[in-house]
């Protein structure tokens, strides 16, 4: 008798739980599962939104890898961008947080200023940096010239455009920085005190305590950085528009172009699915290696 009562209760609880999370669950099915499934289907079709989709098997994938020279360039650009921007973004955020975590005057003031670029609309960040980096009358080149240095074509040279975008990305790392700062402040003081008793210097403490204690958050921010990098769109789109000579044509831009400029929804779906698989794969690899370098504390 008791058992059936418990069963009824737990069924009621499950029902109630599902009821409360149902907005997310329904949204998950509508806006995530269904789109993923349907784009998987469309990736095997030719579809321009006007005429019905035509099944072409692996056609889109074969075209991408054998006939599409731009795509190979896009892959190169994206790997270059992601493999540099994600780690450098983490390094930049971590160093800024470590600096703010030392004994400094007016910490809240500096923290607010360091964080601020992260909440500025991308359109404004894009306009401002495009203006600053202009070769003819941009502030940065004017200052370089004032110092007797040559003009640097930050955004107009294929060799420098990607590094310039990465620099702008590193500049707006406020979110990751704030998360690091909170983590740094959670590192138990006793660890540092013990190290000091053993005669450790500041660098040794940073290397042997601060960094290991932050590895879980480094992993989190690194994964977020990779995902950001792979789907990076707004800043490159607005600042360089993929140029010069396709040097900043990143995956996100190419996907957008195929979908909404060339109306090649099938090819864009194939691109979207490959992006999804690559992101899952990268995340998985990072997690797999994490056992070797991430410290999860004593209890867990």
């Amino acid at each position: 008798m008791n058992r059936s009562l418990i069963k009824v209760r737990s069924q009621r609880e499950i029902l109630l739980g599902f009821l409360f999370v149902s907005p997310w669950l329904i949204g998950f099915l509508l806006w995530t599962v269904y789109p993923l499934a349907s784009s998987f289907y469309y990736s095997f079709t030719r579809y321009d939104l006007l005429r019905p989709a035509v099944w072409i098997g692996l056609g889109n994938y074969i075209e991408l890898f054998t006939e599409d020279a731009t795509f190979l360039k896009v892959i190169g650009n994206t790997l270059y961008y992601v493999l540099l921007s994600a780690p450098l973004g983490v390094v930049s955020a971590f160093l800024m947080a470590a600096l703010l975590n030392t004994k400094i005057a007016a910490r809240p003031f500096f923290r607010a200023i360091f964080f601020f670029p992260a909440i500025v609309p991308s359109i404004v960040v894009a306009m401002v940096w495009q203006f600053l980096l202009n070769t003819q009358f941009g502030l940065i080149n004017s200052l370089l010239q004032g110092l007797g240095l040559p003009v640097i074509p930050f955004l107009s040279s294929p060799a420098l455009a990607k590094p310039s975008l990465i620099m702008i990305y590193m500049w707006a790392q406020g979110n990751a920085m704030v998360i690091f700062l909170a983590t740094l402040q959670d590192v138990p003081r006793t660890l540092y005190e013990a190290a000091e008793l053993d005669g450790a210097n500041a660098f040794q403490k940073f290397w042997a305590i601060t960094i290991p204690m932050c590895t879980p958050v480094i992993l989190f921010n690194l994964i977020m950085g990779f995902i950001d990098g792979f789907q990076s769109f707004t800043l490159p789109w607005l600042i360089t528009g993929g140029g010069p000579s396709n040097s900043t044509e990143l995956y996100g831009l190419y996907l957008y172009r195929n979908a909404f400029e060339y109306l090649r929804m099938g090819k864009a779906s194939a691109l979207a699915w490959m992006l999804f698989i690559v992101i899952v794969f990268f995340t998985f690899i990072l997690f797999r290696t994490s056992a070797r370098w991430v410290y999860y504390g004593g209890e867990k």
Partner: peptide, 11 residues
């Protein structure tokens, strides 16, 4: 972790 770009086209 599902990027918006992946959902964008089907949505």
């Amino acid at each position: 972790m599902v990027p918006f770009q992946v959902q964008m086209v089907p949505l």
